[in-house]
Simulated assay, not measured.
Amino acid sequence: MLFRQYLHMNPVAASYLFGCGSLSQGVVVDPLKEEVDFYIKEAETLGMNIVFVIDTHLHADHISGARELAEKTGAKYVLHSSAETTYEFNAVEDGEVLMAGNTKLTFLHTPGHTPEHISIVVTDTRRGEEPWFVLTGHTLMVGDAGRTELASSIEKGADDLYNSLQKLMELDEHIEVYPGAFSGSVCGRGLSGKPSSTIGFEKRYNLALQKGNKNEFVKFMTENVPPQPDNFKEMRKENQGM
């Protein structure tokens, strides 16, 4: 498997290019609009054809490059089926699987940060049948969890996010965690500058995962919320095609 993590500073975000090198099928996750041509060049350098472009959610802190990238490469643009947009996309459901060559993508619906949020459990089937890592977007980040009021009420988002985190905690502890943001992002609090972790380490030390029950978690997520991103409503609407 080929795997690249790209750390962006304006806005603070992480995007990904990975997939099956032997069959030249690649996947891009959470691409930024400003970097569309960069992903194309990277894929060409790696000898990869981009077959899927995925947004873990409809972003409210930056403009996605996913639709443009999909159009330029002929890839399928993937969102959860509940995403409210004015355009067509390849809809996936909780538990659905897509294959990019020998790379297996299993989608988990993990709402909370936004209602349509997904996480992607990735398996390199040439190495084994067990998952290797999970792309968690803004559901589970290193050190905390994503804010919950940019696309719903803060309480409803926190309630959903608690359930989503429990779903992720069912994954094996050795599985690597690659989030959609890191320290400096407006979409979380107290995030680590280290942009990857494991399920086991986060289970032990992530602040959001130390709450004993849902009520404690919701209270935690509704306190000390950072300022909202500038023009977040407009950015989310643009990503919805509205």
Score class of each variant (00 low, 15 high):
163 N>S: 14
112 G>V: 06
128 G>D: 11
133 F>Y: 15
162 Y>R: 09
152 S>Y: 13
141 M>Q: 05
113 H>Y: 12
146 G>T: 07
97 V>Y: 05
139 T>E: 08
125 T>C: 00
119 S>Q: 03
115 P>F: 00
162 Y>N: 01
129 E>S: 13
131 P>G: 12
137 G>S: 03
97 V>K: 12
127 R>K: 14
157 G>N: 10
144 D>V: 02
102 N>D: 14
112 G>K: 08
138 H>F: 09
124 D>W: 03
147 R>H: 07
104 K>L: 06
107 F>L: 04
123 T>A: 05
143 G>S: 01
149 E>S: 14
146 G>S: 06
99 M>D: 14
159 D>S: 15
144 D>P: 03
131 P>S: 11
119 S>V: 05
115 P>H: 01
161 L>Q: 11
166 Q>D: 07
164 S>A: 03
99 M>K: 14
145 A>F: 06
99 M>V: 11
119 S>M: 05
135 L>Q: 03
110 T>V: 12
130 E>G: 13
162 Y>V: 02
125 T>K: 00
131 P>W: 10
130 E>Q: 15
112 G>C: 07
112 G>I: 09
153 S>R: 08
146 G>K: 08
140 L>N: 05
155 E>N: 07
166 Q>H: 12
124 D>Y: 03
166 Q>F: 04
127 R>Q: 15
156 K>F: 14
128 G>V: 10
160 D>V: 01
102 N>H: 15
148 T>V: 10
109 H>V: 04
165 L>D: 00
154 I>Y: 05
150 L>A: 06
141 M>L: 12
165 L>Y: 00
161 L>V: 05
114 T>E: 06
102 N>W: 10
117 H>C: 10
141 M>N: 04
110 T>A: 03
136 T>F: 08
162 Y>H: 14
148 T>M: 07
128 G>P: 12
121 V>P: 11
145 A>V: 13
128 G>M: 10
109 H>T: 11
108 L>G: 05
116 E>T: 01
140 L>T: 04
127 R>D: 09
148 T>P: 07
128 G>R: 06
154 I>W: 08
113 H>V: 11
163 N>Q: 15
123 T>E: 04
159 D>C: 11
125 T>G: 00
158 A>M: 05
111 P>Q: 05
101 G>P: 13
137 G>I: 04
139 T>A: 15
97 V>W: 06
121 V>S: 11
151 A>L: 04
99 M>N: 14
134 V>Y: 09
99 M>I: 11
145 A>N: 07
128 G>K: 09
120 I>D: 00
114 T>N: 02
138 H>L: 13
116 E>W: 01
160 D>Q: 15
130 E>F: 15
104 K>P: 01
146 G>C: 05
150 L>W: 06
109 H>Y: 08
105 L>F: 00
97 V>C: 04
150 L>H: 08
166 Q>G: 10
149 E>P: 09
161 L>G: 11
146 G>M: 05
153 S>T: 15
113 H>W: 13
119 S>D: 07
142 V>W: 09
145 A>K: 06
160 D>S: 12
116 E>K: 01
152 S>Q: 13
142 V>F: 07
109 H>F: 06
160 D>L: 12
125 T>I: 01
141 M>Y: 02
122 V>N: 02
139 T>R: 11
165 L>E: 01
106 T>M: 14
104 K>V: 02
162 Y>Q: 01
112 G>A: 10
97 V>Q: 06
113 H>S: 15
105 L>M: 02
112 G>M: 09
157 G>P: 09
132 W>P: 10
148 T>D: 09
